[in-house]
Amino acid sequence: MPEGKIIKALSGFYYVLHQDHVIQCRGRGVFRKNKITPLVGDEVVFQAENNQEGYILEVKERKNELQRPPIANVDQAILVFSAVEPDFSPGLLDRFLVLVEFNHIKPLICITKMDLTNDDEQQKISTYAEHYNGAGYEVILTSSETEAGIDRLNPHLENKISVFAGQSGVGKSSLLNVLRPDLELKTNDISAHLGRGRHTTRHVELIKVGNGLVADTPGFSSLEFTNIEAEDLTRCFPEFLRASEQCKFRGCLHLKEPKCGVKLKVEAGEIPVYRYEHYVDFLREIKERKPRY
């Protein structure tokens, strides 16, 4: 049986890429019975009735998957955040980073709309970039208008499945339009009343960019730590994980424990206070989460 990769899921159809040809497929009833939902990015076995239509028979084992956006087998996540309009949100970025780290996906931080910043805003963004670099993340500052930073972004996309994710209105579609001008993806301005972008991407789709595949995903404004437990959270902050080697107690949650390596790094200014505060907020949220039955 032929095998391929799902590059789009829309209205009950799965579009499978097989040898540079896309076949529109439906899922067999066995998926619904076993509560398996094929995702964009899935490697699948399918049966083609002709060159246009077929049925998915099997979903291969996934190396990872995300729920929001719904996509599987991702090599890296390009977390797209704007410097302004809407304003850069480290709290929301840290939420994305936790989810990506938990799913063992390599993150890359891309801050857009740098052409719209004044001197003070540029300095603030540069400071945040230094902090995240210090935590172990690569940060690329870009502009879709001037195409600044695009030459740094392009090499990261080669031979990988990358998911573009971030808050609505930060310029994900505009960035993809620069990477592939022929796409002409729809973009919308920021809502002055809501202070955020209107959703322009309605479904997840893998788009060929160079020798890689990039997913443009629907924007969203919140993330829930549904499957993350308290003991998992430290591992989702790489600089905390390094600092925890100096903690006196194994399994330290970096709250009230004495001789905590993480708190010492915060007090010394080696870990930004806001990163620690976000960690404490996330930990409280996880502990107060209603149990699942």
Rank of each mutant, 00 (worst) to 15 (best):
M1V: 10
K5H: 03
K5M: 08
K8L: 11
K8G: 10
F13S: 10
Y15Q: 10
L17D: 14
L17M: 13
D20I: 02
I23Q: 11
Q24M: 15
C25R: 12
F31I: 12
R32Y: 12
K33R: 14
P38W: 07
G41K: 09
D42L: 06
V44F: 08
V44Y: 08
V45W: 05
A48F: 13
N51F: 13
N51Q: 15
G54H: 13
V59E: 05
E61G: 03
R62T: 07
L66K: 05
N73A: 04
V74T: 12
I78E: 00
V80R: 00
D87I: 02
P90F: 03
G91W: 09
R95F: 05
R95G: 09
V100D: 05
N103M: 04
I105V: 12
I105M: 07
K106G: 02
P107M: 02
K113M: 00
L116N: 03
T117H: 01
N118A: 01
D120M: 05
Q122F: 01
Q123A: 11
Q123E: 10
K124L: 04
Y128K: 03
A129Q: 06
Y132S: 06
N133Y: 06
N133W: 04
N133P: 00
V139H: 04
S143Y: 02
I150C: 03
I150V: 11
E158V: 06
E158Q: 08
K160L: 03
A165M: 15
G169C: 02
V170G: 00
S174R: 01
L175M: 05
L176H: 01
L179V: 03
D182M: 01
L185V: 03
K186Y: 00
K186Q: 07
I190N: 01
I190E: 01
L194W: 00
T200N: 01
R202A: 11
R202K: 14
V204D: 07
V204C: 15
E205D: 13
L206E: 08
I207P: 08
I207C: 04
L213T: 06
V214S: 03
V214K: 06
T217L: 05
G219A: 02
G219Q: 04
S222R: 11
T226L: 09
I228V: 14
A230M: 06
A230G: 07
E231P: 11
F237R: 05
P238C: 04
F240E: 09
A243H: 10
K248M: 13
F249P: 14
R250I: 10
K256N: 15
P258E: 08
K259V: 13
V262L: 09
A268M: 09
E270K: 15
I271N: 11
P272E: 07
V273C: 05
Y274G: 09
R275H: 12
R275Q: 13
Y276H: 13
E277G: 10
H278E: 11
R289A: 13
R289E: 11
R289P: 07
